[in-house]
Amino acid sequence: MTALLEANNLTKTYGNDTVAVDHLTISIGRGRIIGLLGPNGSGKSTFIKLINGLLTPTEGTILINGAAPGVESKKRIAYLPERTYLQSNMKVNQLIDFFGDFYEDFQKDKAYAMLQSMDIKSNTRLRTLSKGTKEKVQLILVMSRNADLYILDEPIAGVDPAARDFILKTIISNYNENATVLLSTHLISDIENILDDVIFIQDGKIKTQTTVENIREDYGKSVDAYFREVFAC
C-alpha cells in the first residue's frame, strides 16, 4: 500500500541563503492524527504549503496518493490555512454552496449541522463575524469534507481556551477515520491528547518522527515536556 504522503529530498530556499525546508524526506501513512511540531520559523508552514502546491519546491519531490500536487491531490486534501482565506463579502451559506460546487466530497448537511451546533447563522456575511467565529466557519468548511488528508495549520492559535476545546472536539469527531490529520501547532499541551504521532521539525529538517506512545514509554514524558527538552534554547 502506497503512503498517503511522501516527500523526497524536499527543499525550499528563499533567495540565496534562507533555507526554509532542507532536504526533507518523510513518509506519512493513513488513519493517523499527526502533530507537526516545531518552534516558530522551523519550516512547518512552508512544508504544508509545499504539500498544497502553494509553493514551488527548489529541489526534491512530494507525492500525495502517488501523484504530485495538482488537481487530483486537491480533491483529496482538505486544507485549513493559518489565515482567513474566504471572501469576506460572502454569506456563510454562499460559502457552503461554493465548497459544495467545487469539492465532490463536501457534505452540506454536515456543514449546516455543525453551524447549528456552534450557533452560527448561515445567512450572515463573513465580514460581520468575529475573528474566532470566522475561524470556526473555516474549520467547519474544511471538516465537512470527506478527504483523505486534512491539513490544519495552527487551527487553535488566536482563539480562547473554550473555543480551542470546541475546535479540537470538532476535528476528532468529524474526520474520516481512514484519513490522516496533519496538525501544525506550537500549543502542544492543548492537542497532545488527540495525537497518534508527532513530527518534530527544526531548521527545515525532520528531527524526530515517532508515536506519542513511544515518547511516553521511552522518555517517560509528555509530548509537551519532551518538546521543551528537545527545543530548549
Binding site: L54, K74, Y79, Y85, Y103
Partner: peptide, 10 residues
C-alpha cells in the same frame, strides 16, 4: 490571502 483557497480548489 484568497489565493490560499483559489490554489487549493481542484
Amino acid at each position: 490571502d484568497e489565493a490560499y483557497l483559489t490554489h487549493t480548489l481542484p
